[in-house]
Design a binder for these strands. Structure first.
Lengths: 196, 196
DNA sequence: CACTTCGTGATACGGATGTACCATAAAGAA
DNA sequence: TTCTTTATGGTACATCCGTATCACGAAGTG
């Protein structure tokens, strides 16, 4: 798929390395073909962004599907956040390109609307719902507000993700901060760390 | 200054709108002059980044200088984080351009080294130092780990900042999340919110 | 068969960009 | 005075980019 080629190109050289020609070469097709399927460059960029979003949602769904049912709140949230950190090379590519799009969207409200506003809003509500249920089950620390905690979780994981991408922190260090955060949010302990 | 012109151009159209000609026009000088002071485009970009960093440090220093001495830990940290959120137009421009550079640095380890690794590392240590002192003074919640808390504060504020830039959250909402976070971190209450 | 649509290729065009080169004028040093 | 350095402008050049155009075969349809 051509949109995949765009992601690969952007994963190597950033979004500013994405040109119609570079994408065509990466996909092994002619420039004309890229023009044929996506008339514009903007259409191509938009399509690649939609595809990134879809793939990410699928990966998250896969993680959640592997949970026991009903999923424990902490496991659910850990699955959620595991997808939000750039741990392996594939995930790193994804987050790099995704963040590049996010910066692009900071100067273009129309581009931002669906993926960067509506998407995180939905995730935040979803997370808040899980936290509300956990609170009635008495699993949350006292005084925890589900909506505020959902916002904290998402923004914290995004911030950690960029600090990893930029090379300030290793993915393992970011996961440790996240674990620390969850330990202070939940009253029930998380899973024991794997022995080394 | 020419580097200021670069920041203004990037603040409007993002870093990809920055060209030698655009910067020259914004600064009201000839293209040749931009070439004269900064031989390369990469030198120009680098210089503008350094200037952004310096200005940000100066603003932070100004905030900290206006604090009573010795500054209360919470006030100190609030000053720190106030600088980290895009509240007004000037701050928004700064964070937009800064984040654009951060994304650029994700694909260029050399560019990232000084401003995006060493800088946040230093800030994190600085914050951890303040938190350590607050802990010995009994101002921190029980079980709080200064290093982990510093990491949480910085990454949380960065994540909140990008969510504001992208339009998902208002700056006021971000400040509220931050206040919530600090309320759970400190045992002593923060300043009362201004009556409306 | 004739014709239209779809998929793919090669290439041309206008514009923007980074960089290089030439020129000029002021100022200071010899 | 002559020379060198500093500061500034104008312009040309090669390259790349997005887009448009022409071309051609395969496939399906009447």
């Amino acid at each position: 798929m051509i949109a995949d080629a765009l992601v690969r190109v952007a994963g190597r050289g950033g979004l500013h390395a994405v040109s119609m020609r570079a994408v065509a070469a990466e996909a092994g097709v002619s420039l004309r073909l890229v023009q044929y399927y996506f008339n514009d460059k903007s259409e191509l960029m938009h399509a690649a962004l939609l595809q990134l979003e879809r793939q990410s949602a699928e990966r998250l769904a896969g993680r959640l599907a592997r949970l026991p049912s009903p999923p424990p709140a902490r496991a659910y949230i850990e699955a959620f956040l595991a997808e939000a950190l750039p741990t392996d090379a594939r995930s790193r590519e994804f987050h790099f390109v995704w963040t590049s799009y996010a910066v692009l969207a900071m100067g273009d409200a129309a581009l931002a609307e669906q993926p960067f506003v509506a998407g995180p809003d939905r995730q935040e509500r979803q997370l808040a719902g899980v936290l509300r249920r956990a609170r009635t089950d008495g699993e949350l620390a006292v005084g925890a507000d589900p909506a505020a905690e959902a916002a904290r979780l998402l923004t914290l994981s995004h911030g950690l993700g960029t600090s990893v991408l930029v090379g300030q922190r290793t993915a393992a260090a970011a996961e440790e901060v996240l674990r620390y955060h969850l330990d202070r949010l939940f009253t029930v302990p998380g899973p024991a760390p794997a022995p080394e």
